[in-house]
Nucleic acid binder design. Structure first.
Lengths: 112, 112
DNA sequence: TATATTTATTCTACAAAACAGAATAAATGG
DNA sequence: CCATTTATTCTGTTTTGTAGAATAAATATA
């Protein structure tokens, strides 16, 4: 029984943010990136819950940052997408596009 | 506080199927269309639950079909996307694309 | 060196979405 | 009538999505 599941909508958004941020991806920067790109106001709790689930599933990997805070404050936990995670994004991407491609409501979004 | 929510991943898939099927959209044909396009094996229960939820939110509208079954069997319940529903697809589409556009895992899906 | 401040993550709880399988319904051919 | 066919509804569970309070760790400073 091969991999049968697809990523959820928010999971996709979160992984997208990780991919864009690269090295810089941690809690606050992820929240900001999502807000910048989608106008979505994500709470910390919501984000970490999703991040932890994705980690448990092996789609993202985490590591603690150096204690190099410039101004005070707790250490950061950085995240990156795994190869598995990337594959899942592709799977979901394909499914979504196969279903939506050519539909006006979808295309319009694509070029906005 | 205007409309702040986005469609779920499966909701998007289902509405996509409705848009493609047009007049022909009802339980079984929707399940088949989703399978054809995404390889996803959707159970009747899962589909109707989603359809009903979307109806409650005003994103799809339903009407019973004529009693014109060719071979026996219960009447069909046909579904169509509302203007509101179409707008929601667009909203989700924009958000998703803003976040994913340009990422290899997303683009690859688009042209597959 | 206490403690206020800053930055960030974890915890707790709950609502919504996704999903399966059994039950039920309605139609018709025999 | 009753078996068969086609389709929807019901019931229950798991997974995702979400917020807000609590907690943690670091540093500046009184």
């Amino acid at each position: 029984m091969p991999n049968e599941k697809f990523l959820g909508e928010f999971e996709l958004i979160v992984i997208g943010a990780l991919m864009r941020l690269g090295e810089e991806a941690y809690g606050v920067s992820i929240i900001n990136e999502i807000d910048r790109r989608t106008g979505r106001d994500v709470s910390a709790g919501a984000l970490y819950a999703t991040l932890n689930r994705l980690e448990k599933k092996g789609y993202v990997r985490a590591h603690m940052g150096e204690a190099s805070a410039v101004r005070g404050g707790r250490a950061k936990r950085f995240f990156e997408v795994t190869t598995e995670g990337r594959a899942q994004v592709e799977r979901s991407s394909v499914a979504l596009h196969q279903m939506m491609q050519g539909l006006p409501a979808w295309i319009k979004g694509a070029q906005a």
